[in-house]
Design a protein around this nucleic acid. Structure first.
Lengths: 225, 225
DNA sequence: GGAGAAATATGACAATTGTCAGGTTTTGGG
DNA sequence: CCCAAAACCTGACAATTGTCATATTTCTCC
C-alpha cells in the first residue's frame, strides 16, 4: 500500500501544499482503487463523498446529451483530482468520469479535504488557484468551440494530446482515443472527425496505424489551429 | 458616496461573507466609477490590481479572435465581481470587459481582497463556491457549443437573458444586445443569427421592435433548447 | 427634424458539417 | 488462432452555417 507522503503525484495538484502530518492522516483514510479501461469512476448526478486522485491512466469527463451521445469536456490524467469541483460546490457531480485506460486512483474522503480548507491557508490558496486555472481553461475551450472550425479544433486537440500525454517510443501519441471519443472531444460527428484525419494524413501532417496517431509535422498543425 | 456596508449588491456575491468592519475597510479604499456604454472596463492581458463590483448595468466578457471578431464568453450584470479570476490566479486578465449599458461599478484594490482570503474562512468558502459555480457554468456552456445547434443556442440564450436581466414593462427583454453581440454570445455569424430570429418571429415565439426582443411563447422556446 | 452612420434584414451561393448506408479493418476473448 | 463485435473508413447526399452583396430600417447627434 502506497503512502501519500511518498507519492510524487501530489506535486501536480493542490495536495502538495499539505504538511507531512496532514498527508499521513490522508494516507490513513484513503483507499486505493484500480479501475479497468471503460469503467466509470463516478456518474453525473452522483453524490460524491470524496475526491479521486489519479495516480496513473487517463480518464474522460463527459456529460450525456439528450440525443444519447456523450459530450466529452476534458481528458484528465495523472495528478488530476477528480470530483474537486463537486466537493467544493457541495453539489452532485456535473460530469461523469470514465477510464480511457486502466487506472490507479486514490479515493480521499471528503472530511479529510474540507477540514484542511479552513485550517491550511497554503492549501486553500492552491485550491483557489487550481479552480481559477480550470476556469480559464474552460472559458478558452468555450471560445474555441464558439469560433473555430473542426479542422482547427482537431489540430489543436492533437497538439494538446501530445503535450498532455506525450508520445511512445515510436512517436505515436501515448493516449489513443477512439475516433468516436476524439470526435466528442472536438465536438463533431465521428465521420467528420475521421474525414479530417484522412485529410491531415494526405497533407503529411500525421500518420496513423489503426487507431494510433503519430504527429509528423508539428509546425504544420500549429499553423492550422 | 455609497458605502459597502449599506450596499445591497454585495448580497449577490462573496462579499456578503464579510463583517461590518471588513466592509468598512473596503468601503474606505474603494473607488466608484461610472462607465459609459461601449467603454472598456479592462482589457485582456491587462494587469488588474483589484476587482470591479458591478452595481448596475450589464457588461460583456469577451476575447478578441485572430479573425478580428470578438468572442463573447459571458454577460455579467449587477452583483458580479469582474476580475476575480485574474486576482486569484495572479495572472493578467484572460478576457476583456466592455459595458453594454451605462454602468456603475466599484473598484476594490487587490490587497483588500487578498488579505481576507486567509483570515476570513467564510469569505474563502464563498469565493471557492463562486469559482466552482463559474466553472460548472463554463463547462456546461462548452457542452452547449460542442453539441447544440444554433437554433437551440439562440432559444437558450433568449431564455437566459430573460431570467438574467428580466423584461421591461412592455415585456421586452431589458437587456437588448445588438444582433452582432447576440450572434457572438451564440457563437455564429451575425446573418445567421438574424435569420434564426426571423424564423422564431414567423413561428410566433418572439416579436421584435427594432433591436428589442419580446418573448411570446416561453414554452415554445423551452421545447427548442 | 434631417443627414449620415450604424444596425438590421434578405437574397444568392459556397463551404462546412451531419446523416445514413455500406463496406473494411482491427480488436479482444475463448 | 479464430471469430464475432467493435471500430474504422468511404461515398452520397441533406442540412446547416458562413460569406458577400445589397437593401432597408433605426439610431445618433448636430
Amino acid at each position: 500500500m502506497s503512502r501519500c507522503e511518498n507519492c510524487i503525484i501530489r506535486q501536480l495538484n493542490a495536495l502538495k501544499a499539505l504538511s507531512k502530518d496532514e498527508l499521513k492522516a490522508i494516507s490513513d483514510s484513503k483507499t486505493e482503487r484500480r479501475i479497468k479501461k471503460g469503467e466509470k469512476i463516478f456518474d453525473e448526478n452522483e453524490s460524491l463523498d470524496g475526491v479521486f486522485c489519479v495516480r496513473s491512466g487517463a480518464s474522460k469527463l463527459s456529460k450525456l446529451q439528450e440525443n444519447g451521445k456523450d459530450q466529452i469536456v476534458k481528458i484528465a490524467g495523472s495528478g488530476e483530482v477528480l470530483g474537486k469541483r463537486s466537493l467544493i460546490a457541495e453539489e452532485k457531480a456535473n460530469l461523469s468520469a470514465t477510464a480511457l485506460e486502466d487506472m490507479d486512483v486514490c479515493f480521499i474522503p471528503k472530511k479529510e479535504i474540507t477540514a484542511k480548507i479552513y485550517t491550511n491557508p497554503a492549501f486553500t490558496k492552491e485550491l483557489l488557484q487550481q479552480l481559477a486555472q480550470d476556469l480559464k481553461n474552460s472559458e478558452n475551450s468555450t471560445i474555441d468551440f464558439a469560433s473555430k472550425t473542426v479542422t482547427q479544433r482537431l489540430a489543436h486537440t492533437l497538439l494538446h494530446l501530445k503535450s498532455q500525454a506525450g508520445e511512445d517510443r515510436d512517436g505515436f501519441l501515448s493516449l489513443s482515443l477512439t475516433r468516436e471519443d476524439l470526435a466528442s472531444v472536438i465536438g463533431t460527428a465521428t465521420e467528420s472527425c475521421i474525414r479530417h484525419i484522412a485529410t491531415f494524413k494526405k497533407k503529411g501532417f500525421i500518420e496513423t496505424q489503426a487507431k494510433r496517431i503519430k504527429i509528423l509535422d508539428l509546425e504544420g498543425l500549429k499553423a492550422l489551429e
